[in-house]
Design a binder for these strands. Structure first.
Lengths: 334, 334
DNA sequence: GTGAAAGCGCTAACAT
DNA sequence: ATGTTAGCGCTTTCAC
């Protein structure tokens, strides 16, 4: 049961192999009659081109590698959606690899992508192993690091300051007169850590005492996790006046837990989340949050990559701050 | 800036190319001294094997194709997680393609995957274009259709009866004495449609009148969508006694909307969702739901694929019903 | 345990 | 507009 090859199609159509190749890739360069003969031969044989052979011969993969830490988080789903919309339309295959929040796995992902000769790499995050960074630099292809701001980008860096955003969220609570402000997070990835740093900064600036609860928990299902963490906090500590949750899912879970215990929001406790997920605006009470621009980040990353590929040079080092926005809503008394 | 090839490594190490190839793939078959020389040459040159060449020469891709309708839904994230865990450990690359709930895009996805010579295809869903089905059959590789039960599987089918589950959810409400039972859904994909069929069936069996609200809306952000749909329903129709939401996100949104309007759950309206997402058990009130086994589905699909690849034959047609479970909780008065 | 030769299935470059 | 030739970078097969 040999697979059908381009040569088989050529024989059946009575043309040379290269003509078949042309019909498939640039049909306009082949005359109508030949094109028709080739197309019917393709159909008759059920020919499907071998992409590996094509990639080898043309030295182009038409593939772009994307590394995300997880698929469990809508943030990355929205980011990937934007990337896909643009890159697939431009004729590229998007190869998504999951690093599971591990720099070692990220390095392996990079090796796998380079092995596939992707034409660019887009990474969520700016922290890599030394070797990973070396691999990316040596590969001489466009690299976009996203979602955070880097002091020292490899090529292009598109993101926001997670620390400033964490500071802004905390300041939002401080401005409303709260002093006992808690910070709630599950596992701390780099981005959450930066938000925590921003929290510390704002608290210190205001002369307030820190009061964080960070736990090592599985990352997914964070509404449930938010309830659990909130319960833990309320059981073990003096009640805070306000809570800054490192993401909206945690915040929603915390709100549910408070409701269950008859703690009024924002009357007894104010809560602010992060990312401004779509349910935040329509929750009851509506949830204050920090809006992050992950869709725009993905879109811009894709556009920059396409531009760099067309320019066929590595882009100049560039850092783009897409910023964030404080969304003041009912859960913090607005 | 020519890329480093296996031949370059061979020259530097002073061995033949095939030895380099062996060191990389079956290090045990090469003597210690040569292996070391090769490995240092690899490191020195920063050699990264060209996978396209490897796939072409070996006629094996070590890749498995997976088609899902969206990445926006945790259901598929959990399903993919299971697939990844098993297939990546077994040395396969998992190529995920997104059909965006379109059979045409699914067909294109299948072509793309076959072009990459994937060694098996795992598809969420059982509905394909005629041509897509033909492509899969002719490709002579293991095919697993999942998440629904098919009358006529291509090879292996692992799933549950969405219709029975929809019927069971409705019966759960009927047994609690409700008569005005609403069905709430955004866009109807095949699985939601089957749940709706189950709803119709149960209502007819009980001699009750249908009362569904199905809308054409964007699919993501369904907590927000659930609030919106619930509001629409409460504004336009006589108030139902119970609502069956086609997924837990919609149900949570509906609960939020009811709360906002001072409608007590389950005192004024009972609500049941679908999928038993992790927040269902910890919502307040806790949300009744139908537990689907998507993780197990992914796991079993991966295992069946590995078995079929090792057996190097297409598997016999097989249909596995993984079932579902009714989770009775506070939102329906339990 | 190691190597030489041949070829996987395409496409680039150069004819015609 | 179509064909010829050569080769992409690996692995297979067979020999030593």
């Amino acid at each position: 049961m040999r697979r059908v090859t381009l040569d088989d199609v050529a024989s059946l159509a009575g043309v040379s192999p290269i003509t078949v190749s042309r019909v498939l890739r640039k049909p306009d360069s082949v005359s109508e009659p030949l094109r028709q003969r080739v197309n019917s031969a393709v159909k008759e044989l059920g020919y499907v081109p071998n992409i590996a052979a094509s990639r080898l011969a043309s030295a182009r993969s038409h593939a772009i590698g994307v590394i995300v830490p997880t698929l469990y988080n809508v943030i990355f789903a929205e980011y990937l959606l934007a990337l896909h919309e643009i890159l697939v339309d431009a004729g590229f295959q998007v190869i998504v690899v999951n690093s599971r929040y591990s720099e070692i796995e990220e390095e392996n992902a990079i090796k796998a992508l380079l092995g596939q000769r992707v034409e660019a790499v887009i990474i969520a995050g700016i922290h890599h192993t030394t070797h990973a960074r070396q691999l990316l630099t040596r590969a001489h292809l466009p690299v976009v690091e996203t979602l955070e701001l880097s002091q020292d980008p490899i090529d292009i860096n598109i993101g926001m300051s997670q620390e400033s955003a964490g500071r802004a969220a905390t300041q939002h609570l401080i401005q409303r007169g709260f002093k006992r402000i808690a910070f709630l997070s599950g596992n701390l990835d780099h981005r959450s850590q930066s938000r925590l740093d921003g929290y510390y900064l704002a608290m210190r600036e205001a002369g307030l005492e820190d009061f964080e609860l960070v736990t090592q928990r599985p990352r997914h299902s964070s509404i449930a996790l938010g309830s659990a963490l909130c319960a833990e906090m309320l059981n073990c500590m003096k009640m805070p006046e306000a809570i800054f949750c490192t993401d909206d899912n945690l915040a929603l879970g915390a709100m549910q837990e408070c409701r269950k215990r008859g703690i009024g929001i924002p009357y007894n406790i104010s809560i602010i989340g992060f990312h401004d997920l779509e349910f935040a605006a329509c929750a009851s009470p509506s949830l204050s949050s920090i809006a992050s621009r992950r869709y725009e980040t993905g879109k811009l990353a894709a556009e920059k990559v396409l531009a760099a590929i067309h320019a066929s040079t590595r882009p100049a080092v560039e850092r783009i701050d897409l910023g964030f926005e404080v969304k003041a809503r009912e859960s913090t008394g607005d």
